[in-house]
Amino acid sequence: MPPKAIGPYRVLETLGSGGAGTVYRALDRRSNDEVALKLLSTGGPSLDDRAARRLAREFETLADLSHPNVVKVFEAGVHAGQPYLAMELIEGLTLRHYLDVSFNDLHTPTPTPASRFPLTLRRTADDDFGSEDGPDDDADDASEDDGTFDLNAFAEEAPSEDLASFHGAGDDDSDSDGMPGVDPRRAAPRAPQPPRPATPKMADLNRPERMGKLKDAMLQVCEALAYIHGHGLVHRDLKPSNIMVDDDRQVRLMDFGLAKFLADDAGITADGKLVGTYRYMAPEQILGEPLDGRSDLYSLGVILYELMSGRPPFDAKTPHELWRQVLETEPPPLLALNLHGDPQLARVAHRLIRKEPDDRFQTAEEVYEALSE
């Protein structure tokens, strides 16, 4: 049973739940605006007032961020010993469902990457969340009318600690071809679910419309990462479910910083659990080494690899086997899995998932330039 009110917000419904907390659709009683309200989980008893206020103050710094490709955080507070964040409510799809080959909207026109602004200009753009007209408003309206875009904005990958997310232990988070899907248990319970992705055929993965959408989305993610890295933040849990695409095809990066909150919570890490989603973890994150923006770039490479090939670069039945592969083995060449894949995107993906941070692209700006070639 959700709480009726959290701070100055009246809770309307539950949108989803995951390892970092529960997200509600809520109404700001001061302005009458709807927001997405994330009540953060501490994995145990409520924090004492001093610790909760400290965490809320840390998250208040997120409210100073303003970028078209980053979900806007309005404020942070504390409810019953649990920190919460009030955020922009996004209606859209996760990146995986946006690029799902079974959807019927792939025929709609897609902005070509060449038409995007240079990264340096877009990073200084005003706080204008989707006010510009899209490349084809009629096509977008049609997508909205047929239910393609809905409120599954906060569906999440299966939790990292759930062994059922690995092949052989269950099929909640994977399709028959090994391509991870969104765990239906994490979806907004009152919103219609998009259909589970069908087993993709390589010809479908390589369709020009889909590849145009993929490349444009990757460019926008690079812009978001360049912005948050420039503010000294590391996402730490970049994955398709933390990348939303709205009905104007605007990409939004969300939940950055929450993994650090979980990692800093002794109640969660006392038993030695890693924080993050195993499939997307960089080697240095598995080893518990200090992280910087290059760890996020590794995660971006995993996302690009699996969206191009229909399978993740490393696949295992247990977390320890997965970690061994990430640390010790090389992934199959992407173009051996997808013979007609885009060679430049494949080169970018492989460089991003190199084991040593120094061997990867060093900044999101560099990735942006490589994708634009």
Results as ranks from 00 to 15, higher is better:
residue 193 Q to A: 14
residue 122 R to I: 04
residue 200 P to D: 11
residue 214 L to A: 12
residue 197 P to T: 05
residue 119 L to E: 01
residue 137 D to I: 10
residue 127 D to E: 04
residue 212 G to Y: 05
residue 153 A to F: 06
residue 120 T to S: 10
residue 174 S to Q: 14
residue 115 S to W: 05
residue 161 E to G: 03
residue 107 H to W: 08
residue 130 G to N: 02
residue 120 T to V: 03
residue 111 P to G: 02
residue 197 P to H: 09
residue 149 F to C: 06
residue 143 S to F: 01
residue 206 N to G: 03
residue 123 R to K: 12
residue 187 A to W: 03
residue 147 G to Q: 12
residue 138 D to V: 06
residue 115 S to Q: 08
residue 182 V to R: 04
residue 164 A to C: 05
residue 140 D to F: 11
residue 147 G to Y: 12
residue 203 A to D: 11
residue 160 S to W: 06
residue 207 R to M: 03
residue 200 P to Y: 07
residue 130 G to E: 00
residue 177 D to R: 12
residue 129 F to I: 01
residue 174 S to L: 14
residue 182 V to E: 04
residue 119 L to T: 03
residue 187 A to N: 07
residue 121 L to Q: 09
residue 116 R to F: 08
residue 197 P to V: 02
residue 182 V to L: 10
residue 142 A to H: 13
residue 110 T to S: 14
residue 113 P to H: 13
residue 186 R to D: 00
residue 136 D to I: 01
residue 136 D to T: 04
residue 199 T to S: 15
residue 146 D to N: 14
residue 173 D to F: 07
residue 164 A to L: 06
residue 213 K to G: 06
residue 123 R to I: 09
residue 179 M to C: 14
residue 122 R to P: 00
residue 116 R to Q: 07
residue 122 R to Q: 03
residue 161 E to Y: 10
residue 116 R to H: 05
residue 145 D to R: 15
residue 174 S to Y: 07
residue 193 Q to F: 05
residue 145 D to N: 10
residue 123 R to G: 09
residue 115 S to V: 03
residue 141 D to L: 05
residue 170 G to Y: 01
residue 195 P to N: 08
residue 167 H to F: 07
residue 153 A to L: 02
residue 187 A to T: 05
residue 119 L to N: 09
residue 179 M to N: 13
residue 204 D to M: 12
residue 181 G to C: 15
residue 191 A to T: 12
residue 158 A to H: 03
residue 198 A to V: 14
residue 164 A to V: 00
residue 192 P to W: 12
residue 156 E to M: 10
residue 152 N to E: 13
residue 198 A to D: 11
residue 174 S to I: 15
residue 119 L to F: 01
residue 148 T to K: 14
residue 175 D to W: 08
residue 179 M to L: 15
residue 143 S to V: 01
residue 108 T to D: 11
residue 212 G to N: 11
residue 188 A to D: 14
residue 108 T to A: 08
residue 172 D to F: 02
residue 209 E to M: 08
residue 203 A to Y: 01
residue 206 N to S: 15
residue 179 M to D: 06
residue 108 T to V: 10
residue 158 A to N: 03
residue 131 S to G: 05
residue 127 D to C: 13
residue 178 G to H: 12
residue 141 D to F: 00
residue 185 R to F: 04
residue 111 P to Y: 03
residue 168 G to P: 01
residue 170 G to I: 03
residue 178 G to R: 11
residue 132 E to Q: 12
residue 185 R to V: 07
residue 133 D to I: 02
residue 143 S to M: 14
residue 127 D to T: 04
